[in-house]
Amino acid sequence: MNYLWHVSFLFAVFTILAVSLDLLIGHLGLLVLCHSAFFALGAYLSASFMLSAHLPFPVSCLFAILATGVISLPVAFAARRLRGDAVVLGSFALLLVTVDLLKNLRNLTGGLDGLRGIPPVHFGPVQLVSYQSQAVFAILIAAISWLLVQRLTFSAQARFLHALRDDPYAAVGLRVYSTTIYFRTFALASGMAALAGVLYASYASYINPSVFGSDQAIALTAMVLLGGAARPWGPVLGALIVISIPEIVRAIGGGPSYVGAVNYVVMGLVLFLFAIYRPKGILGGYEFK
């Protein structure tokens, strides 16, 4: 039973990540590969605030989300200026730099050894320690995140974003030019990824840079492209499929390194096949031109 709660927790965390990445890919039209850098930032910042500064969970969580949102703004600025493939490559380089910095800044991040003893989710004296309570909490957060994104993406503001995404020249021809909404949406997406990082860090009680590497980034992008970008249930479906793959491999007797390798193959294949044959994803979402 604990195993099921564990998988449910992972599904919830990856749903938050996929839904927030979909804001960037599907609604802003930015094919970024650095979302797991924001995931990492949220995890490490929250863990550091709790371990070093002994801040309570709610305060650490809030600071981690806000800090990640602010740190993401220069990334948003750069992404706005660049063409499609430059965004892909630049964001991939940013992810590699981030993971390397997490490995190398031993004094701050523990280096390859990571950070241990991260406190679980707690609100005052109430601690969520069991698999079940943490999974239920994560599912609740995931549901709220999904709802918030749906509200945002079916609104006048969403039309504004989609116009900027599809044709910025035509958009300015209709007086759609404000950049505030673009930055706000980017910061919201990165903040949500940070929230997922906070939940993960408190659940696992131990984080190291390998959790947030390029394979994670590829898996997240695969979730969004697989399910269908800019579709309400697309990222959720993508997260469900991607989470299931390693569990299926484990169920048929694969060891941990085998699971990792199969993940690489499947994620890579998904990206490749969908790029060629079905860029709109299973549910037929936003298609990259």
Binding site: L31, V266, M267, V270, L271, F272, A275, F288, K289
Partner: peptide, 19 residues
């Protein structure tokens, strides 16, 4: 396919090969 999609496909192929 757009340059961005081709780059994504290229990344996918590399990860497949590694796996």
């Amino acid at each position: 396919a757009s340059n961005a999609l081709r780059l994504i496909a290229s990344v996918g192929l590399y990860f497949m090969a590694v796996g």
